[in-house]
Design a protein around this nucleic acid. Structure first.
Length: 607
DNA sequence: AAAAAAG
């Protein structure tokens, strides 16, 4: 009944099921040909190809002098002007009168990243080859190798080309056919690997094909009836998803609206009144809208939770249950539900199963994949020395600065107060910094993010509000000024750098207060082939008796990529997941390749 | 214990 597979991606077209498939793709995008092989700097130059092809903002607009991936420069397609020739004749009847739809691609053409385009080297497609993919569930649809292998519709295909996505990333190759076939999905994948597209494409395509559109109930003219709901844990992430989705939905007739707190609700209400097919929202504001009876979920056909493990953790779970289970949303089976995350603790998977109907579990990536291009350092720093130590790092960084521009540095701290005070101190000491955290107004938060992205304030001091999902190009350095208590949070935080083929550096300040993290941090770094200081190993041994992270219990959740159903009902004895009869991991025996990684007690290096 | 998410 249930089958699953482990393979290397991209694999040959067929086969998911009891077999494994390995094949290599020879594809190298034009701009990456004739590059020196990146052997000299393995850690810094290995890239996850998805980062270059997926949702990353670098994907838009390309890079001057070679960033155009499909050989069709955007300006040629667009004619350089709004809605240029060839754009408006592809509606296939799906356009439902989008009077004045803003061209979401336009700004990307004009706002070319001013920072460091020269460092866009070293995308290594061999790394891409090595990404294992694991699926489990009944009748898993086979992956595709090209977007053209699936009929997503002309308008969406055109937008995919405009986004310069040439080839689906591993998560897209697998998730899109699954989603297109109508199946529920629990997926683990890095952000920046095309995750947003992986759930947006099927939703947009499905809505286009269904021919139902943003309904305007005549009896309830002020109530919006979205067909799809995408929830995310932070406002900025919702904004980002909305921006992405708008690009994908451009001139498809599918209308995307975003709703989040801290912003004037009236504007959002007005947008909703104009009709909404896909609603992107944070939970709090959505509940508000539901209570005001301005949104009804009764027409929902698609539900997507981004950062799903975060959405179902203690703080969020009641709100999510309320939205999904206690309002008027159709139950599992009558809607299609897709959960995306990186880290997917077993206990959270269990909760998540409530929202799903005979779902497929998908994990894409390989151990340490997100950290392969991130150099991780841990330094022993007493609380009292943290500021001066940070100052040393920043001075060194400034000395090595590229073209006089300071590389972007994202500094994570534990508390909102701590963020403010560190920001103030940095500014006082000549380092232009800003901060983002939940005590700031939404306006301030968005301004801080913009100011950071643009390099105006190349240092951003952040709480965990910025830890997940945010795609900030050109972050060269993530500093864990205060380490988080949970290794998952660490993984998400460092994942803000090393994106889109860029090398990244992550520095953590460690001291006695972080003892409980020593074990999992040490294990994680080891698996990512990072240098683990001896003293950290000692900490790990010392605290290993008591200090389990919440993943707990021996078998662990490495890879975030283990279907909990296999533990409970398929794997009674707790035997090695990868030792089962159907599995050929192809990595040459137990000690080779990923053997150690999957079984370990560390959480995933996924993002 | 903290952060996030409604105002």
């Amino acid at each position: 009944m249930s089958s699953y597979s482990v393979e290397r991606a991209p694999a040959g077209g067929s086969g998911v099921g009891a077999n494994s498939h390995f094949s290599r793709s020879n594809y190298v995008p034009p701009h990456l040909r004739n590059r020196p092989s990146p052997t000299e700097q393995p850690a810094a130059s290995i890239s996850y190809a998805g980062a270059a092809l997926g949702n990353d903002r670098q994907g838009y607009g390309g890079q001057p002098g070679g960033g155009i991936r499909n050989g069709v420069p955007w300006s040629d397609v667009n004619g350089g002007g709004r809605g240029g020739g060839g754009w408006n004749n592809r509606n296939n009847g799906w356009d439902r009168g989008r009077e004045r739809e803003v061209n979401p691609f336009q700004e990307d053409v004009n706002t070319e990243p001013e920072l460091g385009t020269e460092e866009n080297t070293g995308i290594n497609f061999d790394a891409y080859e090595d990404i294992p993919v694991e699926t489990s569930g009944d009748n898993v649809p086979p992956p595709v190798n090209t977007f053209a292998d699936i009929d997503l519709g002309d308008a969406l295909n055109l937008n995919i080309r405009r986004c310069k996505y040439v080839k689906p990333t591993p998560v897209q190759r697998h998730a899109i056919p699954i989603a297109i076939s109508g199946r529920d999905l629990m997926a683990c994948a890095q952000t920046g690997s095309g995750k947003t597209a992986a759930f947006c494409f099927p939703i947009i395509s499905g809505i286009m094909k269904s021919n139902i559109s943003a309904q305007r109930e005549t009896r309830m003219p002020r109530m919006a009836f979205p067909l799809a709901l995408i929830l995310s844990p932070t406002r900025e992430l919702s904004i980002q998803i909305h921006e992405e989705a708008k690009k994908f939905a451009y001139q498809t007739g599918v209308r995307v609206v975003v709703a989040y707190g801290g912003a004037p609700i009236n504007l959002q209400l007005r947008e909703l009144e104009r009709g909404v097919d896909i609603l992107v929202a944070t939970p709090g504001r959505l509940v508000d809208l539901l209570e005001r009876a301005r949104v009804s979920l009764q027409m929902i056909k698609y539900l997507a939770l981004d950062e799903a493990d975060r959405m179902l953790d203690m703080g969020f779970e009641p709100q999510i249950r309320r939205i999904v289970q206690q309002m008027d949303m159709p139950p599992p089976g009558l809607r299609q539900t897709m959960l995306f995350s990186a880290t997917f603790p077993k206990e959270i998977q269990r909760l998540a199963a409530d929202f799903l109907s005979t779902y497929i579990f998908l994990a894409v990536g390989r151990v340490g994949s997100s950290t392969d291009l991130i150099v991780q350092r841990v330094e022993y720093v007493l609380e009292t020395d943290k500021r001066s130590h940070l100052m040393d790092l920043l001075h060194a960084q400034r000395a090595n600065g590229v073209q006089g521009k300071q590389a972007l540095t994202l500094v994570f701290v534990e508390t909102k107060k701590g963020a403010d005070s560190l920001e103030h101190w940095l500014c006082m000491n000549g380092f232009p910094a800003t901060t983002i955290h939940g005590d700031r107004t939404q306006q301030e938060r968005e301004y801080a993010l913009r100011s950071f992205k643009s390099g105006t304030t190349p240092i951003l001091v952040a709480t965990d509000v910025a830890a997940r999902g945010l795609d900030i190009p050109h972050v060269a350095h993530v500093v864990n000024f205060d380490l988080p208590n949970d290794i998952d949070d660490y993984v998400h935080r460092i994942g803000r750098t090393g994106r889109a083929g860029k090398s990244g550096l992550a520095t953590a300040f460690f001291n006695e207060n972080n003892s409980s993290l020593a074990r999992s941090l040490s294990d994680l770094m080891q698996e990512a082939n990072q240098e683990v200081p001896a003293w950290l190993s000692h900490f790990a041994v010392r605290s290993s008796s008591g200090g389990r992270n919440r993943r707990g219990g021996g078998s662990g959740g490495r890879f975030g990529g283990r279907d909990f159903r296999r533990d409970s009902s398929f794997n009674r004895g707790g035997t090695d997941f990868y030792g089962g009869p159907h599995i050929n991991n192809g990595y040459g025996g137990p000690s080779g390749g990923y053997g150690g990684g999957y079984g370990s007690n560390v959480t995933s290096a996924w993002d």
